[in-house]
Amino acid sequence: MGKSNSKLKPEVVEELTRKTYFTEKEVQQWYKGFIKDCPSGQLDAAGFQKIYKQFFPFGDPTKFATFVFNVFDENKDGRIEFSEFIQALSVTSRGTLDEKLRWAFKLYDLDNDGYITRNEMLDIVDAIYQMVGNTVELPEEENTPEKRVDRIFAMMDKNADGKLTLQEFQEGSKADPSIVQALSLYDGLV
Score class of each variant (00 low, 15 high):
102 R>A: 15
38 C>S: 10
50 K>H: 01
164 L>T: 03
19 K>Y: 11
102 R>Q: 08
107 L>C: 04
149 V>L: 07
58 F>C: 00
41 G>A: 03
90 S>L: 06
154 A>Q: 14
161 D>I: 02
116 I>S: 01
26 E>R: 02
106 K>I: 11
174 K>D: 07
3 K>F: 05
130 Q>P: 01
23 T>W: 12
135 T>N: 03
57 P>K: 04
136 V>P: 08
77 D>H: 09
112 N>S: 09
185 L>T: 08
176 D>I: 15
48 F>H: 14
4 S>E: 02
116 I>E: 09
146 E>K: 04
120 E>H: 14
82 F>E: 15
90 S>W: 00
107 L>E: 02
113 D>W: 04
20 T>P: 14
111 D>Y: 07
111 D>E: 13
160 A>H: 15
55 F>W: 08
69 F>D: 01
140 E>F: 06
50 K>L: 05
35 I>V: 11
151 R>L: 12
160 A>T: 04
108 Y>G: 01
118 R>N: 03
81 E>G: 10
42 Q>F: 14
149 V>N: 04
127 A>T: 06
124 I>P: 03
167 Q>P: 06
142 E>F: 09
13 V>D: 12
95 G>E: 13
123 D>V: 05
182 A>Y: 06
49 Q>D: 03
141 E>D: 04
142 E>I: 06
97 L>Y: 12
49 Q>C: 08
30 W>F: 01
150 D>H: 05
99 E>W: 00
124 I>L: 05
169 F>H: 10
76 K>H: 00
173 S>P: 14
153 F>I: 04
166 L>Y: 14
25 K>Y: 11
163 K>E: 11
28 Q>W: 13
140 E>G: 14
128 I>G: 00
165 T>V: 09
124 I>M: 11
159 N>V: 13
158 K>L: 05
98 D>N: 06
5 N>R: 15
34 F>V: 04
97 L>H: 12
110 L>G: 12
155 M>P: 14
18 R>T: 06
14 E>A: 14
102 R>K: 13
69 F>E: 07
119 N>W: 04
31 Y>L: 15
37 D>F: 09
42 Q>G: 08
42 Q>W: 04
76 K>N: 01
145 P>H: 04
38 C>H: 10
55 F>T: 14
53 K>V: 05
136 V>N: 02
5 N>P: 14
91 V>T: 05
181 Q>C: 14
76 K>L: 07
141 E>R: 09
168 E>L: 11
73 D>I: 14
188 G>A: 08
137 E>S: 00
174 K>G: 13
168 E>G: 11
154 A>E: 01
78 G>I: 10
126 D>R: 14
157 D>K: 14
12 V>S: 10
187 D>T: 00
8 L>I: 05
49 Q>S: 03
144 T>W: 06
121 M>L: 13
107 L>F: 11
16 L>N: 14
167 Q>H: 03
95 G>K: 01
114 G>F: 07
